[in-house]
Amino acid sequence: MSSDTLAKASSAPGIPEYADSLPIVPRRRLGQWTAAVAVLVLLGLAVNSVLRNDAFQWDVVADYFTTDAVLRGLWLTLWLTAVVMTLGFVLGALLAAARLSANPVLRSVSWGYVWLFRSIPILVQLLLWFNIGALYPHILGVRTVDLLGPVTVAVIGLTLHEAAYAAEVVRGGILSVDRGQIEAAQALGLSRWRRWWRIVLPQAMRSIVPPAGNMLIGTLKGTSIVSVIAVQDLLYSVQLVYHRTYQVIPLLMVATVWYTVVTSVLGVGQHYLEKHYARGSERTR
């Protein structure tokens, strides 16, 4: 802007010469204040009703919160989540690599896998695996029911389900990496392995971590479905107690609070992981 136009602006009608000393009064935001107050009141009522409703039996919740049975259930939920996530993402990465390969057979098989396992509800799949003995009474000469206990069935079913989603997450991450990155690495003579681990994957992780974090939290809660095949996870453990004591609500609260605690911890972990993989993506420092 030239000094000429500035001079014109300051001599506009009604604006005095000392324009830079005029205070600015922000617009009043009545709507925002009303909405905030309304939400706080509703929230207060909800919290009040939870705390004042004796049927929650918070003392019972406290009694059972750290009992052995509950902690054993929590432990199973945690390791089942870890195993399913790990195996699911290993299988998912292989499926993604197959889907992106030049080999049409591998591409089609990978596509078919994702299509099939995303189409079957996890509950249906678990029940199918649980009853696989009806189809194959013996596997490698061993009775199927002996080979595939409920926990093994849970791991297999959840992993196969997880892998279908992980494959799409990993594939999306790889596709998000600019094609020029691979060409630059090729032009520099980097081996296929080095291109993958040093150049593509670290950049793909930026797009993989947020949905993977979502999946991790989803899987943690999703493992509660294994209670239908009598695997003693966190949910099934509290169910065993309330089937005996009829304190349904407080024991469901035990599970609820534990799920919330673990989910929160995982959320914090995800935040730091995202920061780690965002290296070099900020413009200024």
Binding site: G180, Q181, E183, A187, G189, S191, G280, S281
Partner: peptide, 25 residues
């Protein structure tokens, strides 16, 4: 591919869009 990569190490290539690796210093 190994041989092609070895040949490329003797030929420098500079791209229009730089294609620097953004996650590395």
């Amino acid at each position: 591919e190994r041989e092609v990569l070895r040949q490329r190490t003797r030929i420098g290539f500079v791209f229009q869009n730089f294609n620097l690796f953004p996650h590395l210093t």
